[in-house]
Amino acid sequence: MKKHTSLSSLSALGRMLALAAIALLALPARGDDGATNEQLQASEDQRRQLEQQVSELEAEVTRLEAQLARQQQDAETAQAELADVTQQLEEARELVASQDWEGVYQQLTQVRAELAALRTQLAAMNGSLELNAAFVFGTAPFVLGQTYATAGGDTVTFSQVRYWLSNVTLLKQDGTTRALTDSYHLMEVINAQELDGTSNPVTLPANRRERVQARAVPADTYSGIRFSIGVDPTYNDDLSRQAGELHVLQNMASVSWMWFTSYIFTKTHGTYVTAQGTQGDFAWDTGTNANYRTVELPFPITVTVNSQKRLTVNLQANVAPLFASLNPSTTPSIGATQSTESATLSDGFANMFALVSVENADR
C-alpha cells in the first residue's frame, strides 16, 4: 500500500514537470534571428514564471505526500485495530468452547465497542466523487462528424465541442457547501489539432473527456451539486495563475480573440446546411467574465461520502439546447464582441445539463 502511494505521488510529479517542459519548449525560439529586445525580455519573463510554477507544483507534491503519509498511518492504525479485534473474536470462540459464558459476553461487548469506534473513524475520512457528463444531442449519442437536425431546421455537423467545468461544489441540506479544491476540468470531444501560438509544432491528440474524478472529498452528507461553466475572474483575468487543468497550452486561451487575455470558456465549431441547401462553417466561442455560468442540481435523496461510501453523479450534457435560440446560418460566428449572442450561447451551455442518476455505493 505504501509503495503504491509513493509511486502515485511520483507519477503526479512527473506529469506536472512534463507539462512545464512542454510549456518551455513551446516558447518562441531565441537567438539573433531578428527578435527584438522586448520579445527576448518577454520570453525570459515567461520562462521565469513557468519555472516558478514548477517550483510551486513541486511544493504541492511534497505537501500531498505528507498528507498521504498521514492517511497511510491512519489506515495502518485501523488495520492494527482490526487485527486486534480478530484476535479477540478468536478468543471469544475459545471461551464459547469452554462454556465460559460470562467471559464470552464481556469479550463480545468489548469487540462491539471497538468496531463502533473504527466505523466512526472511517466515516470521518475523506471519500471520492466521480462526475460523469455524457455528451448527447437530443436523444442521440454525440459523435463528431455525425449530422444532427437543429430546432431551427438546419442540419449541423461538429468538429469540436469543448468547455471548462469548474468550481465543483457539493451542497448540504443546511445550506452550507463544500467546494472541491483545484476544480478546473476541460471537457471535450475533439479531433487532433495543432496547438496555436507556438514556434515548435505541438499537436493536441484527439480526445473525448466526459468524466471528472475527485479523490479528496470531505466526509459528510450531501443533497446536491453545483458547478460552473467557464473560468472565474480570479483566473480568467490573469493567465499566469494556474489551478487544476488551467494552462494556456490547450487551445482554450487567447490574447487575440478579445481586447484582453482570457480563457475561452466554450468552443462549439462545425458546419451547417440550411433547408434551402446553403452551407458553411460556424465557430461559436465564449470567454468574457459575463459569460460565466453556474449550474445547481439537487439530488433525489441525500448521499453520504466517506472512505467507505463512494459517490457517482451521472449527468447528460445535451448539445441540442445550444441551438434553441441561435442559428448557425444567420450567426455563423460568435466571439467576445458579440455580447448578446455570447450571453445566449452561455445560457445554452448552462441549460445543457440534466441529472440522470446518483449512485452512493459501498466500497
Rank of each mutant, 00 (worst) to 15 (best):
F135Y: 06
F135Q: 12
F135I: 04
V136Q: 14
F137R: 12
F137Q: 10
G138H: 09
T139E: 13
A140N: 14
A140C: 07
V143R: 15
V143M: 11
V143L: 13
V143W: 06
L144N: 07
L144W: 00
L144D: 04
Q146M: 06
T147S: 12
T147N: 13
T147M: 12
T147I: 10
Y148S: 09
Y148V: 07
Y148H: 10
Y148D: 10
Y148R: 12
Y148F: 06
A149F: 02
T150A: 04
T150C: 08
A151M: 12
A151R: 15
A151F: 04
G152T: 08
G152P: 11
G153M: 11
G153R: 12
G153P: 12
D154Y: 00
D154S: 11
D154C: 07
T155Y: 11
T155F: 09
V156Y: 03
T157I: 03
T157P: 14
T157M: 13
F158T: 04
F158C: 11
F158Y: 08
S159R: 08
S159C: 04
S159P: 12
Q160F: 00
Q160P: 14
V161C: 07
V161E: 06
V161T: 03
V161G: 04
R162M: 06
R162I: 02
R162L: 07
Y163M: 13
Y163T: 03
Y163I: 01
Y163E: 05
Y163P: 10
W164G: 00
L165R: 15
S166I: 00
S166P: 03
N167K: 13
N167W: 00
V168L: 10
V168P: 05
V168T: 07
T169F: 01
L170A: 01
L171W: 06
L171Q: 15
Q173A: 13
D174H: 10
D174L: 10
G175H: 09
G175I: 00
T176H: 10
T177C: 08
T177E: 12
T177Q: 15
T177N: 14
R178C: 02
R178A: 02
R178N: 05
L180T: 03
L180W: 01
T181M: 05
T181H: 02
T181D: 13
S183I: 00
H185P: 08
H185L: 05
H185S: 05
M187S: 03
M187V: 00
V189E: 15
V189R: 14
V189I: 06
I190H: 09
I190D: 04
I190V: 06
I190P: 13
A192E: 14
A192Y: 06
A192F: 02
Q193W: 03
E194L: 01
E194M: 05
L195D: 03
L195Q: 11
L195T: 07
D196L: 09
G197A: 04
G197R: 08
G197Y: 02
T198V: 04
T198M: 04
T198A: 01
T198I: 00
S199V: 02
S199M: 10
S199K: 14
S199A: 10
N200S: 11
N200G: 05
P201C: 00
P201W: 00
V202C: 09
V202T: 09
